[in-house]
């Protein structure tokens, strides 16, 4: 935990990118705290910086200035190798386009993060079965991604995200590529993970309908958290 008791604490974070000679400031001296057990939705238009903020919390990117602390660890100071190991231990990721490996079955896709642990093959199988059971896809575990619907692929993606029982589950537009019905099922699942399994979730979304499932919604605009609304 950070000093203020938050699971995630972003302080004075600035992120700039270079495009040729032009410097683009994506995040502007941003502060954010996410308490443990919260389901936070980050909303905002394209280019507002919400995915960049999510990447900083996930340890996929580093702030140009400021700090990011997750579960008491300053992840912006970790080396690349240590950061990779940290992600494997603490972060579950859910992507808009699922990012499943097409040559692996659902079961083996879910198993991937467990290959970074010291679990035995039998233990890995048990964890995979549990995760697939949580998302309701045990019966489809031998299927390849191309034979699964979009909603099913995203559920496999969520199973992969939770299989290591991470500290944080980070979802970037998890319903962005799905129809309303499938999207609702995914949101239902995320809500259940938050309520029943006390998972801390940070979700980036465009969709107000999706954001309504969160316990807290923050709006981003031009690199700043401009508005906060409790749902």
């Amino acid at each position: 935990m950070s000093d203020n008791g938050s699971l995630v604490s972003v302080r004075d974070a600035t992120k700039t990118f270079r495009r040729g000679s032009e410097e683009i400031r994506v995040l502007e001296r941003l502060d954010l705290d996410v308490p443990e057990g919260e389901f936070l939705a980050l909303m905002g238009p394209s280019g507002s910086g919400k995915s960049t903020l999510l990447n900083l919390i996930a340890g996929l990117d580093r702030p140009t200035d400021g700090s990011v602390t997750v579960a008491g660890e300053r992840i912006d100071r970790l080396s690349r190798t240590k950061l990779a190991a940290w992600r494997a231990r603490h972060v579950g990721l859910v992507f808009q386009f699922y990012n499943l490996l097409p040559v692996l079955t659902a079961e083996r896709n879910v198993e991937l993060p467990l290959l970074l642990t010291h679990l035995s093959r039998a233990q890995r199988k048990k964890h995979v079965d549990t995760a697939l059971g949580v998302v309701g896809l045990t019966h489809r575990k031998g299927h390849y991604p191309r034979t699964l619907s979009g909603g099913e692929q995203q559920r496999v993606g969520i199973a992969r995200g939770i299989v290591t029982d991470p500290t944080l589950l980070l979802a970037d537009e998890p319903t962005g590529d799905l129809d309303r019905k499938s999207g609702d099922e995914i949101l239902e699942l995320l809500t259940a993970l938050n309520r029943e399994h006390n998972k801390t979730i940070v979700m980036v979304t465009h969709d107000p309908h999706a954001a309504r499932r969160a316990t807290r919604v923050l709006h981003m605009s031009e690199g700043k958290l401009s508005q906060e609304a409790a749902e």
């Binding site: 996930a58 996929l60 690349r80 190798t81 990779a84 190991a85 940290w86 992600r87 494997a88 231990r89 990721l93 992507f95 386009f97 990012n99 490996l101 097409p102 991937l112 993060p113 970074l116 992969r160």
Partner: peptide, 14 residues
């Protein structure tokens, strides 16, 4: 590109 990035995001090393 995306698959390799996904693996690295999950924590696979360089």
């Amino acid at each position: 590109t995306r698959e390799i990035a996904t693996l690295r995001a999950l924590g696979f090393g360089n």
